[in-house]
């Protein structure tokens, strides 16, 4: 199935990433920029659902720390994803602590309206899901499920790495990701079929994407 291959795209750059990190550790700043470009989109997606609009600021802080501590890091491309995700997560949690804002209560309307372009190339009848709507759906999940899904799917970590980032057992994280995805699929499926139990805003979004 063509679909099976698709999610791997997130990790497809791991080899390249590992090489870039190694060169950056030898002092090559262009290589560091390459690593940045590979990792940043996933980090930002993850951070957005944790801290909403402040994601870019938090990511910026995280990158300062990553840049500073790069020499300490040991591992390959996949490891670098995990390491950076851990740093980003700590920054996000610090941020939330400072703000005393619960992760899912922060505003998510603004700034997130940039819809991704149509992805008809990806597969059959799959329609694009707006960033806004996707974020909203993910934020409806319990926090552990949301994080597990994001780390696996958006950041591109494997199970053990996601577990290490979250400081939990791999089994627990696998279960959380499974439940989270199931719930998301359910929400999407239900909405697609009957618009049942969704907010007005959600229906509107769905109407757009149909």
């Amino acid at each position: 199935m063509g679909q099976r291959r698709q999610p791997r795209r997130v990790q497809a750059y791991d080899g390249e990433l590992g090489a870039a990190v190694a060169r950056a550790q030898d002092g090559d700043e262009a290589a560091f920029a390459v690593a940045y470009r590979i990792v940043q989109p996933g980090l930002l997606g993850y951070l957005r659902s944790l801290v909403g609009d402040d994601a870019e600021d938090v990511a910026s802080d995280a990158w300062l720390e990553i840049a500073r501590d790069l020499g300490r890091f040991k591992g390959d491309g996949a490891g670098f994803r995990g390491w950076t995700a851990t740093i980003a997560r700590h920054r996000a949690l610090d941020h939330l602590r400072r703000q005393r804002v619960r992760p899912r209560s922060s505003a998510l309307e603004q700034d997130l309206l940039d819809l991704p372009g149509p992805h008809a190339t990806h597969d059959e009848a799959m329609e694009s899901l707006s960033t806004e709507r996707a974020l909203e759906l993910v934020r409806e999940l319990p926090r552990d499920q949301a994080e597990a899904v994001l780390l696996r799917v958006v950041v591109g970590l494997d199970g053990p790495a996601a577990a290490r980032v979250l400081g939990k057992r791999p089994g627990a994280v696998r279960t959380a990701a499974h439940r989270g995805l199931k719930r998301l699929a359910h929400r999407l499926g239900v909405e697609g079929a009957e618009d049942e139990g969704v907010t007005d805003e959600a229906s509107r979004t769905l109407g757009e994407s149909k």
Partner: peptide
């Protein structure tokens, strides 16, 4: 949508921008 499709969808929607 199967699980892989859903993952792809989420990744596309949520990654970076």
């Amino acid at each position: 949508l199967d699980d892989a499709g859903l993952e792809m969808l989420l990744a596309t929607a949520l990654r970076g921008g």
